[in-house]
Computed example of a mutant assay.
Amino acid sequence: MQCRFMNLAPFILLVTQGCEQQPQRFSDNDIQEFREGLPGITEGCLNKIKYGGIEAMPSSTDECFEMTPARQWKGLWRREFENSRFCPSPAGSCSYQTAGDRVWLSGKALTSSASDEGLYEVEFVGRQTARKGSYGHLSAFDYEIIVDKVINLSPVSDDATLTE
């Protein structure tokens, strides 16, 4: 009987070694500050940061933040260097200075559809961050919407530019 259990010893050793906890890279107080400073961040993402450092934080917003279910959106999208502002309908203009919540628009479906800077009328299916926070370039936006599917994307002519 003992011989059979002796054959399991290497297996048990491998399993228990895989369960060892990595040392924390950030303290519990640091993690609490992340939680407070980044509304909507998931516990799973906080754990990655706690043990893997800031470099372990996934680059895609939807991998770290609570998102609303996908839905259809329509409005204006201003694409500029270091700016991707979305202004939902019935917006008549859309720039960084436009009043209201600043919404950063992102997603592979979007960036593969439009390569030029400018103002676009856009309709798409996407998911928005569930809580107001700091998103986009330099964390200067209140929300982020990740575009999953572009339905319509039409440039607004320079003559009809609707910036403020």
Rank of each mutant, 00 (worst) to 15 (best):
Q24D: 13
Y135C: 00
P10A: 00
L8K: 00
G92Q: 06
E43W: 01
S154N: 13
S134I: 06
V103Q: 01
F5A: 01
A114R: 01
A140Y: 10
S157H: 06
Q21G: 06
W77R: 00
R102F: 12
A9L: 10
G107A: 04
G133F: 02
A140G: 07
N29L: 13
I31C: 05
D28G: 07
R85Q: 09
P88A: 01
Y143A: 03
L76V: 05
E117S: 14
P58M: 00
L38T: 04
L162N: 11
Q97H: 14
D142R: 07
K50C: 03
S93M: 12
D101W: 10
E36K: 13
P155H: 05
E164T: 09
S59D: 13
T163M: 12
E20L: 15
V156S: 06
S93W: 12
V150A: 10
G133Y: 00
R25S: 12
I151L: 05
P69E: 07
I12G: 00
K132I: 14
K48N: 02
D101I: 10
T163R: 12
P58K: 01
F26H: 04
G126I: 07
R102I: 10
L119R: 08
S134R: 08
G44W: 01
L162K: 10
I41F: 02
N83E: 15
L38M: 15
V125H: 08
D158R: 14
Q22G: 07
H137W: 15
Y135K: 04
D158S: 14
W77I: 01
G37F: 11
D158K: 15
I12T: 01
I145E: 05
T98I: 05
F11L: 03
T61Y: 08
D148F: 02
L14T: 06
T111K: 09
Q97M: 13
S115N: 07
Q17A: 09
A56S: 10
D62H: 14
